[in-house]
Each structure stands twice: as C-alpha cells, then as structure tokens.
Design a protein around this nucleic acid. Structure first.
Length: 581
RNA sequence: GGUCUCGUGGUGUAGUGGUUAACAUGCCAGUCUGUCACACUGGAGAUCGCGGGUUCAAGUCCCGUCGAGACCGCCA
C-alpha cells in the first residue's frame, strides 16, 4: 500500500511523490495549516496540509490513532526537527484516505505513559503500540535471533520438548492439566525441560538448545512470571569450562548486536561461599562496592549485650561502611533503615558514625579504643563514614545487609547504569537443609553432579558436599543456572536417596530417567538462561512485564482476557472434576 | 499464607472532619500559515471502589468487603 516507511524519507527524496500509511500520532491544527505526525512501526513522518483545499476537508475529521493512507509530495521543511529521523522533510498531502477510525483511547499512545500498569495490561494492544514497548519487543527479537544464529553456527540443534509432562516432586509447584482421556490423572507443565534435554544427550545429539516456555506455579514478582522463556542448552563431552566459554561467547554476540557493546570475557568468577560472605547474596550486583565485612572476631570483646548474646548463640556480626554518608543520615533516617530490615527478621540495626576522627552516635560508646583501631583498618573507616552493623544468625545478617547494600547503592547513586557486570557464581553446596521437611534438598536440582571429591559423601555427609553447578548473574539478577549432570545411573540413584526419596519413589517418579542412564550416557552438562530477565536488563526495564507481549499481572491474572476464568459444568463433567466450595 | 501501601473526572495526581472537591493532561468548541509537549479563549466531564458505622457534618475517622501494587514466605 505504501511507497515508503515512516522513517525513510530524507532531503534526497524532495519533490518525490510518495504514499504513506500509519496511525495518526498527533494533530497540530494551526488554522490555515495542519501538521500531522504519522506513525508506523518504523518511525514518524510529518504531514502538512491546508484545510482550505477542498480535498482536505477530511483532514478536519481525523483524530489521534486513526489509520490513514496519504499521497503527497516530499518537501524540505522550513523549520527542521533534529529529534526526528525524518526531521528535514515533510510530506505535503495531496490525497488522504481514512482506512480505520479510532475511538478515544483510554491511555495516551506516547513513548512515556503515566497510565498505571493494570490499565496498560487491560489495553495491552494499545500499550504495545507505544514506541517504547515496540522497541523492547524488537530488541527481544534481536536477542533470540542472535542466540539462534550463534548456536546454529556451532552445530547446535533446536529440539522441541513436550509441554505436557509428568509432575516432579522436587522444586517449584507444577501447573497441572487434567486429563480427559484418563480421568483423575494430570499432566504437569514443565518447570524446565531438564530431563528431556538430558535424554537428548543420551540419544546422542550432543549439542541441543531450545528457546522454550517454562511454567512455575509460584507467586509472581516484578522479575517472575508464571510462564517465562528460557534459553535452554545442553552439551555432551564437556566440563564447566566449556559451558562458561559457550555462554560468554553467546552473550558477547548478544551484547554487540543489541547494544553495540563489546564486553570482556572471561567473566569474573566467585564461589558461592565468597559471594555470601562479601555480598550476603548469591546474586550480587558488582557495579558498586559497599561490601559486607565480618567483624565477629573484632567486636567479640565488647561489653555490648546484643553482640555478646549473638555470638553465644553461634550468630555472626557483619558490617557495611557507607562511605561519606554520616551527614546524610539522621537518627530518624537510620530508624527507617532499621524498620526496612525487620521483614528479614532482623531485630535491630547497630550503627555509629565517624565524625571529627571519633566514633559518634549509636553504639559508639560501647567501642573501646583497641577495637576501634582494628575496625578502622578492617573497614577502612574515614571521616563522615556511616557504619551499619547487623548481629544475628547467618541468614538474617546476610539478607538484611544485602538488602541495605542494594538499597543504599541505589539511594546514594553508587550504581553506574551503563555497566553490564556479568559474573559466574561457582562452587555451590550440593544440598541445603530444609527445616520444614527435616531433610536435605538439592540446592540446584538432583541431576547436578557433585564435585569429584564429594561423590563418595553424598549419603554419609551431604552437608559438606559441593557440586559442579554454576549461576550466571548480571547486575544483581540471577540470569541463569546450570550444571554438569550426573551421567552415572548409580550416582543418580544415590542422589535421589540423598534428598529423601525411597527406592519405590525413585522408580515411580524418575524410573524412566534412571533406566535411560543405563544405556550409554555421555558426560554432559548445560545451562538455562532467563530470556525475559536478560531482555529486561538490556532494555533497562524495571519489570519483565515490559518485555513480554502479553504478561500476567502480579496476582497471575490477565486483565485483558480476564484469565483465569470459571469453566462450565459440561467441561468439568468431562474431566470428572468437582469444585469444592 | 503473611506484612505494608494505594483506590478521587477518560488518564495521572492534590485534597487539616466544615463553602460549589483542586491541578495537570486528554476530550469538545472557537481563534490562529511553520508547529513538532503548538499557543490562546471558552466548555463538558466525578454517585471520591462498594457496604456499614461514628459524627450536627465523612473523599478524609473506624469496621467489613472488592480491586491494584510492593515486599516476606515461596521460586530444585
């Protein structure tokens, strides 16, 4: 229908006859002269017309978001707009046709919107018409295209794995789909194609990837959706190093193709233990310092009740030094910080300031000269520094201070937003103890190979085992997680036992899988990366909802289609399902 | 499952228990030939989420309810 796209015309096209189509983005009617911004997915071209010309009486009726087709002549502008690709020219309309009228939209279609999210979701098709959202979707496409090209060039094959599978007991809650053919039985939607991709290795494909939807029936967050997309990868005859190189290479191309940024490889690596130690989290944002420092030993001599009780109960004491911030935080501000870590079960926040070369405020009077000189060097305390301390059990200390670290990093503008800090977290413990279930659970998943030195101990001393597992972290977000898998069926069976499964349960839940490992399984490993999160970070979005075309709201509802919905009796009857009231 | 915050014209917000519920933007009408966040003049548009209560008087306080959001738990 058109001769040009709306980002195409330049001074070199002046005097050409052109046909353009698009949505009316803005009408500026100056009386004797009308300007129209015509928008399509490529950009905006300014149209001009004079209403006294009888052909143009139609102009007076067109409104925002009408779809129109215009014929006209390209002219050089009297006053140019440097903010627009086509800002040197305009199209003088000779003929105009309305292809589609538009109601007044409930939200303004502009790059920036002040509409709240539930309204945007309800009219998602209009929200997606906004240039900002369109560019998010285009960038997302560029990422998947780059990923596919990358893997394709190095012999990877994309294989589709089933969406209807078997419920697995470990890990996240499954979405369940009732079977009509087999009443009372349920399919589970995959949380990840984990077992299938390993079976593809047993089959001998050696290099598999898939850009695949995964489903988890857990509560949603800004960075978590019930259905989300993973870049899922598995390779045979590899060790951890091969996976690191593979993914670093992929991300290098993605960064270059989408942002024009050349990132350095290899990515830094730190162990899980070190990350918890220095940042209090397994997904640290390394764009700024403000690291956690364990001061348990240093302050153990102090006559301060909270610290004493903490250490007697095998707790730890950690501090962060907020540089040059003493004058920025009043007592009241610090009270607010204290309040903000209550949700992590922190009972309090100890603090003091360094002012005029001496400790002031908070717990300063409890600190002896001897201890303060050690603290000064350990925490590198200078004038106007604010020291925040949490004393409690390990989990509370780490989660509280990790929260304060990111909160203050943002609040005090310590974060360089141009940076993309990729990071591998390696050397993960194999298990963590689940107090509620009173058993060890796999920290990653039960297909993860223990480190060679831990293999003999998974049943006798699971708490001391480490695994061949790795996470990739970007700017404080967990971007992906993977491992070298167990390819020995006996070790796999032991692993299931270690997480508390009986022989019968292993056969029932994973029998087919353990069986498959018996027929010649190559050593293999892989990784899965969250595509939505990656695109979110590349587009500087604050929520993955901004990079998913039709996402669910925070309470797992689609405000547009109003899913989920009640279904009628007939459907329930077919499935032999009764709803409990 | 829990904690907290928020529901006021189409949209986004303001609103000390007391006059006709304010502002911005959008919308409608008019003026305008160089705008690009056009400008200017005028206008329409709100049962203040819903139900109950306290009070002489409730958008405002209390209780309930529905809805939205953030976080904790949860997310192998």
């Amino acid at each position: 229908m058109r001769s040009h796209k709306n980002n195409e015309l330049r001074l070199s096209n002046v005097d050409e006859q052109v046909v353009l189509v698009g949505w009316v983005s803005k009408v500026r009617n100056l009386g004797g002269l009308i300007f129209i911004d015509l928008r399509d997915r490529y950009g905006i071209t300014q149209l001009t017309a004079k209403p006294e010309n009888k052909n143009h009486s139609i102009l007076e009726t067109i409104k925002n978001e009408y779809v129109i087709k215009v014929e006209g002549t390209v002219k050089e502008r009297e006053s140019k707009n440097p903010n627009l690709e086509t800002g040197d020219i305009e199209v003088e309309v000779t003929n105009i046709e309305i292809l589609s009228e538009a109601n007044l939209t409930p939200m303004i279609i502009a790059d920036k919107t002040d509409a709240l999210e539930d309204l945007r979701m309800k009219y998602r098709y209009l929200d997606l018409r906004r240039p900002a959202m369109q560019s998010n979707m285009f960038l997302r496409h560029k990422v998947t295209k780059t990923v596919r090209n990358y893997f394709d060039n190095i012999d990877f094959i994309e294989v589709e794995t089933p969406v209807f599978g078997k419920s697995t007991p470990e890990g996240a809650r499954d979405y369940l789909v009732p079977s009509r053919v087999h009443p009372g039985k349920f399919y589970a939607l995959p949380q990840s194609p984990q077992m299938y991709k390993q079976l593809l290795m047993v089959s001998g494909f050696e290099r598999y990837y898939q850009i695949v939807k995964c489903f988890r029936d857990e509560d949603l967050r800004a960075d978590r959706q019930m259905e989300f997309t993973q870049i899922d990868v598995e390779m045979s005859f590899v060790d951890e190093e091969d996976i690191y190189q593979l993914i670093e290479g992929m991300l290098k191309e993605v960064m270059y193709n989408t942002k024009g940024i050349t990132i350095n490889t290899p990515f830094p690596r730190i162990s899980f233990d070190e990350s918890m130690d220095r940042y209090g989290t397994d997904k640290p944002d390394t764009r700024f310092d403000l690291e956690l420092v364990n001061i348990s030993d240093i302050v153990s001599t102090l006559e301060f009740g909270v610290f004493k009780t903490c250490l007697e109960n095998n707790g730890i004491i950690k501090a962060i030094n907020v540089k040059n911030a003493a004058d920025k935080f009043s007592r009241k501000d610090i009270d607010k910080l204290t309040e903000s870590i209550k949700k992590f079960k922190a009972k309090g926040l100890a603090w003091f300031k360094m002012e005029d070369n001496s400790y002031t405020g908070g717990i300063s009077k409890f600190i002896t000269d001897e201890v303060s000189s050690t603290l000064n060097s350990k925490l590198n305390i200078c004038n106007n520094d604010l020291i925040l301390i949490v004393a409690d059990n390990k989990n509370v200390v780490n989660s509280s201070l990790s929260f304060l670290r990111t909160y203050l990093g943002r609040e005090l503008n310590l974060i360089d937003h141009e940076k993309f800090n990729y990071l591998w977290i390696v050397d993960w413990p194999s298990f963590e103890f689940d107090e509620e279930e009173n058993r060890y659970v796999a920290m990653h998943h039960p297909f993860t190979s223990p480190k060679d030195e831990s293999k003999s101990q998974i049943l006798t001393n699971p708490g001391s085992c480490y695994s061949k597992c790795y996470d990739i972290v970007l700017n404080g977000y967990e971007l992906g997680s993977g491992s070298i898998r167990i390819h020995d069926q006996k070790l796999q069976a032991d692993m299931f036992k270690a997480v508390g499964l009986t022989d019968e349960e292993i056969v029932e839940k994973f029998g087919f899988f353990v069986e498959a490992l018996k027929y010649g399984t190559p050593p293999h490993g892989g990784i899965a990366l969250g595509l939505d999160r990656l695109v979110m970070l590349l587009t500087s979005s604050t929520s993955i909802r901004d990079v998913i075309a039709f996402p669910k709201s925070a309470n797992a509802i689609d405000p547009m289609s109003e899913a989920p919905s009640v279904i009628d009796e007939k459907q329930l009857k077919e499935l032999k399902i009764k709803i409990e009231k």
